[in-house]
Write a protein that binds this DNA or RNA. Structure first.
Lengths: 341, 341
DNA sequence: GAGGATAGGACAACCCATTCT
DNA sequence: AAGAATGGGTTGTCCTATCCT
């Protein structure tokens, strides 16, 4: 049995190999591979055939080393955040029609944002789309000096000149949540915040403003939380120990809310009968029937669309309104909220 | 205010720029950037300083265009599978000490495996680590002819010469689940399978064998399912309509089990009082208190470790036992199983 | 103080594709 | 449709200054 052509050569076939086999120049092969005009139908056919026979595959790196455009959008995301993975899926969908590719770089406990961005830069991405970046604003500004940077779901104040921001109106979302709860008769509504997490400050502010607007300033209670289940669970324990105990809680996000629900459940506290709980994001987590979480929904396809749109606009020199793109949230009422007892 | 050096030039600084500034050759700069011996401490210092001043960053693509090694492991994973994202995190951790980097390529409804692999190959990955690949065995074999391929969690029969397989003993896992249920007094145990999904055949077989071993051959009932919540939910509806109704179900995986739980819950069927449910994977999903799913746990760090190990072994010409690496599963008993009524 | 080993550094070819002539 | 220059780095070869015995 004869070895396959590719395996035989020991190394990947190149343009030159295809050219030799088809009896043409590498330039012509290049033309054909890029599906550009400049080759007759007959030659095109012959070259394609030759390429197929030896299993030729263009080398993306060599290609973009030469052409100054890489058409690569670097995306940094949190592996364990359903909100982020949902976003990534929509980003793929948004990038393709625009003629760009996505390079993924994950952030996880064992992999820092710094590492994630470094690898994206080394890969010659043309622009960076950062999902909920936690890096200092100064660092983002510095990056933005080198290439277009879009921060998704993380606001920058003061509007950081170069960094484009695409986000949900977090304060408005928190307001909707509070309005909903107040409408159900709740007055003692606590907020488990996200600390320094992206969006946390706005949600906190939205919560405070809404509470005050309803004349509930005295009931404002912010418990330190975070964006993971564990942090939500810890906050819930603090909440259970509090007297008086609030009748409703707005958690920083769905994961945090899930941690809260877990703790309440294990403590025998009925949800929503004794305590109503609201999350934020409307990630797939919230939709699971067991969780069935009332939550402030973010428009994920919309965010992705705008993020790609703004990155591309900057890359292609189109006028891009510097500053923020703010998308409205929409409260999704499910089973974890009910009228105050 | 003067623009930064990098922003000023309009394009990224190159080796030549650093060399010019430090007054040395590009070759020497290259040596220093790679932290290789061949430069004196003094020049090394001077070059590092120059590089820092102009914000030089090596171009990963140009670099590996020249050096035949890319030290890049391509990983294909399902964005929405918690089991996969957990695995990815462990893969990052396993690759670094081995001196390799990870290139991620996601599979999602809008992005096929074919596309995912194409982009990995175009990026000149040295080996492919595919998480639960669904591609035809012939396709995998073809790929394996070009570069080392490790299939994680997807068995290939007959042992596909070139493709390394790292997986959990799925049949053994299914057996553990059935044993557990039988031990609790269940006899009418159904299995919602994964159809053609990786591992599905083995789990199905393990289920059948275990049932038969317990003298319950007549109670064997396999319902068509899948690996998503929706497919689990659909199967659960079929299950509810069945007479007699089984008292326990083994679902293909945790997502599927979650869909089952959702449907049962919404139909007012008590779990585990009326029906016990077992999942597979022990992903984070199963651990959430609301779900609190009894499940067959896979050793995720172990799978990742072996996957990287086998890819690296092949790349570095170490002896790699062709064929399978099989890791034992471990049943994790939580709250969705109880004694038969 | 001459001959030889050694380390520091320069030069140029090369990797694979694109693009200009 | 061919030929050659190009892009950013790596690497093998070769030269030279330095240190040794």
């Amino acid at each position: 049995m004869s070895p396959s052509p590719t395996a035989a050569s020991g190394k990947r076939p190149t343009l030159a190999d295809v050219a030799a086999r088809a009896g043409v120049s590498t330039a012509l092969v290049s033309t054909v591979m890029r599906d550009t005009k400049g080759a007759s139908a007959a030659t095109r056919e012959r070259i394609l055939q030759a390429a197929k026979e030896i299993g030729y595959r263009p080398d993306a790196r060599a290609r973009l080393l030469r052409s100054h455009r890489s058409r690569l959008l670097g995306v940094q995301f949190g592996l364990q955040h359903p909100f982020h993975t949902d976003l990534v899926e929509c980003l793929y969908a948004a990038a393709e029609p625009a003629g760009y590719q996505i390079a993924l770089s994950a952030v996880a406990p064992s992999r820092s944002e710094q590492q994630a961005v470094e690898s994206l830069l080394a890969d010659r991405c043309e622009a960076l789309i950062l999902l909920g970046p936690q890096a200092p604003a100064a660092r983002l500004a510095e990056l933005a000096g080198q290439l277009p940077v879009v921060s998704v779901a993380r606001r920058l104040r003061p509007p950081c000149g170069q960094v484009a921001v695409v986000r949900t109106a977090d304060d408005e979302g928190a307001r909707q949540a509070v309005d909903h709860l107040v409408g159900l008769g709740h007055r003692d509504i606590a907020h488990i915040d996200g600390g320094r997490a992206p969006g946390a400050a706005d949600r906190r502010r939205g919560y405070r403003t809404a509470m005050t607007g309803h004349g509930l300033a005295e009931h404002v209670r912010v418990l330190p939380g975070g964006l993971t289940e564990d942090e939500g669970a810890a906050a819930a324990r603090a909440l259970l120990a509090a007297r008086p105990r609030p009748t409703a809680v707005l958690a920083f996000n769905d994961r945090c809310a899930t941690g809260v629900l877990d703790t309440l459940l294990r403590s025998g506290v009925q949800v929503p009968a004794e305590i109503s709980v609201i999350g934020f994001d409307d990630s797939r987590l919230a939709r699971l029937a067991h969780i069935d979480l009332t939550t402030v929904g973010q428009d994920i396809p919309g965010l992705a669309e705008f993020a790609v749109g703004r990155a591309v606009a900057r890359l292609e020199g189109e006028p891009d309104p510097e500053g923020e793109t703010v998308i409205a949230p929409r409260l999704v009422v499910r089973g974890t909220t009910t009228a105050a007892g």
